[in-house]
Design a protein around this nucleic acid. Structure first.
Length: 299
RNA sequence: GCGCAGGUGGCAGAGCGGUCAAUUGCAUCAGACUGUAAAUCUGACGCCUUUAUGGCUACGAAGGUUCGAAUCCUUCCCUGCGCA
């Protein structure tokens, strides 16, 4: 990598904490550009369900990695890692501040710490075959192929086991974990609102989503021949919306409640991940976080 | 008022004489995380403690039967449905 892009600002926080708005505010103030770190915003046509930045925000500040993947395709962290790093580098070349924002912690980690992913693309045929096996059987297969990885892997997690076997099959064994951190001064700031404030924000967000006609967005995906199975993979909002369309969920109110409930659950998982990253400087709200970002930039 | 069905841990809902502090799901809490990551997976979840093949209190209430009851009997209270 070049000498450009010496700084990288990362903004994290749970869903509905106000990350996107903060990112835009900071970008305006500090002459930056935003790179989204959201596993679903990458797909085209998920404006509402994945909560794209608003039109005004998109106009105010350049955003990257939003809405550029065909929703019929499957996008993965490895691709994200490459694209995001390139985007960050390019922003640096333009002498602007790259701001990485999002709630998908794995994506952020992939960019910042640069976990080296084995170059083995997903093998759908193999996966389908292995999916019929029990976790015990999968663990046995892995043990035969790579005992070292077998010792450390979560042996009850079929998805992990399958991926490990996939790699072992292609490469002989799983390479040791390596990382290739971002060559930049990275500062991570997080917004962690009080629990009840966040809860209210999540509720509001769910309602707004439905008011903005989220259901129509889902119908549109169906019309565009995105398979139901694939739509379900786009996140729980989409799963819930499909249930609504099938009549399993009767009212819009019930729909909003279901989305809120799932979002809150997700927030918990996000926080579990955030908590262990000691690099993050936490703030209670946007303003505090904003001030911190400015300090970082001018120091 | 009579008939029938019920009252179980935060909720739903199993259990119908011992192996029941009580299956399971949800909710809650904690955690993991090497190309699906809003995914996938794990643990805890009555109370107490010296954490144990430990103690205590518990399955609407009160009595009773029994070596032993969430489980059987009696009465009472409450809920739903049916009939008056």
């Amino acid at each position: 990598m070049g000498q450009e892009g010496k700084k990288l600002l990362v903004i994290v926080g749970p869903t509905a904490s106000g990350k996107s708005a903060l990112a835009v505010a900071v970008a305006k103030k500090l002459n930056g550009e935003v790179v989204s770190a959201d596993s679903r915003q990458v797909y085209r046509g998920l404006e509402i369900g994945s909560n794209y930045p608003t039109k005004t925000e998109l106009k105010a500040v350049p955003h990257h990695l939003v809405g550029f993947v065909d929703p019929k395709k499957t996008f993965t962290v490895a691709e994200y890692q490459k694209k995001a790093r390139k985007a960050i580098k390019d922003i640096g070349k333009r002498h602007k501040l790259p701001i990485l924002v999002g709630g998908t912690v794995f994506y952020i980690q992939a960019v910042v710490d640069g976990i080296v992913m084995p170059e083995v693309p997903p093998d759908e045929t193999l996966r389908r075959k292995l999916e019929t096996r029990s976790t015990g059987e999968l663990a046995d297969i892995l043990r035969q192929k790579d005992k070292r990885r077998w010792e450390t892997i979560d042996r009850r997690n079929p998805r992990r086991l399958i991926r490990a076997i996939e790699i072992a099959k292609a490469l002989g064994k799983i390479p040791a974990l390596q990382s290739n951190p971002m060559p930049a001064e990275v500062v991570m700031i997080g917004i962690d609102p009080e629990k009840n404030i966040l809860k209210k924000a999540v509720e509001k967000r769910s309602r707004a989503m439905i008011q903005r006609n989220f259901i129509r967005e889902v119908k549109m995906l169906l019309q565009n021949d995105v398979k139901e199975e694939k739509i379900r993979e786009l996140g729980f909002e989409y799963q819930i919306a499909l249930r609504y369309l099938k009549g399993e969920i009767k009212s819009k109110r019930e729909l909003a409640d279901a989305i809120t409930k799932m979002t809150l659950k997700y927030v918990k998982r996000q926080m579990t991940w955030f908590k262990r990253d000691r690099r993050i400087h936490w703030s209670r709200d946007k303003k505090e976080a904003f001030d911190y970002a400015r300090k970082f930039h001018y120091h």
